[in-house]
């Protein structure tokens, strides 16, 4: 464990908590892409299948449980509890264009052709593009609530910090995982446009508005 990975996990956890609280407190999932949350639930499910078979540490196991539980709770709130507030007309990104290519790629490019490894690889590839429906929805509605932009910022920063974690691990542990690194780079690049808007607008107290 290193400071970058720890801060990254904290950032990821806070993004998940921010979103849960936003929906629960406001009893509304307006502006939130249910499709992205569905993709995140798939990412965590396919990545943490070794949750019960491969104990790494109490921290690792408890974080995985929190991630899986909160992602399902978020999907449940969007598609069931508060589905009246779900803005389906603007959440129209074709997720099959994300799931199919990443699934095929995980069969072609992986470290080991075994079910667990292919599912792990699929979850890494899918996570790198899972935010696209949400970013697409924000660009379609032309703006996002401030709390949603904080959620997106925390979510984007988490994988950016993981990039530094991988530099650290390459330097000091002679370890690197090209699949995770390349996917993490793609994931971070997808946020660049949003990071720019967040830093130039939201941090100045303005509302986040994208040129529609």
């Amino acid at each position: 464990m290193n400071i970058f990975r720890f801060l990254g996990d904290i950032s990821h956890l806070s993004a998940i908590i921010i979103l849960l609280l936003k929906i629960w407190k406001s009893r509304s999932c307006a502006g939130i892409s249910g499709k992205s949350q569905l993709l995140f639930a798939i990412v965590f499910t396919t990545r943490y299948l070794d949750l019960f078979t491969n104990f790494i540490s109490f921290y690792n196991t408890s974080m995985k449980v929190v991630y899986v539980a909160s992602s399902y709770a978020t999907v449940w709130m969007i598609y069931s509890k508060f589905k009246a507030t779900y803005d389906g007309n603007h959440d129209t990104f074709r997720v099959e264009f994300l799931i199919v290519p990443t699934a095929i790629l995980s069969f072609l490019v992986n470290h080991d052709f075994t079910p667990l490894e292919i599912l792990w690889t699929f979850s890494i590839y899918l996570e790198s593009v899972a935010i696209l429906p949400q970013l697409f929805m924000v660009s379609k509605t032309g703006e996002a609530e401030t709390i949603t932009s904080h959620y997106l910022f925390a979510l984007g920063i988490y994988r950016t910090l993981y990039l530094f974690n991988w530099i650290w691990r390459y330097q000091f542990e002679e370890f690197f995982d090209l699949i995770a690194i390349v996917a993490g780079l793609v994931q971070t690049v997808l946020y660049c446009d949003f990071f720019y808007l967040y830093i130039t607008k939201v941090l100045k107290g303005k509302k986040l508005s994208l040129p529609a």
Binding site: R5, D9, H12, D50, N54, I56, N60, M63, K64, Y67, H111, D112, E117, W120, I124, Y162, N165, W166, R169, E173, E174, F175, F176, D177, L178, I179, A180
Partner: peptide, 10 residues
């Protein structure tokens, strides 16, 4: 040979 380091990561 890329070590699959990322398995102990979240």
């Amino acid at each position: 040979e890329a070590n699959t380091a990322a398995k102990d990561e979240l």
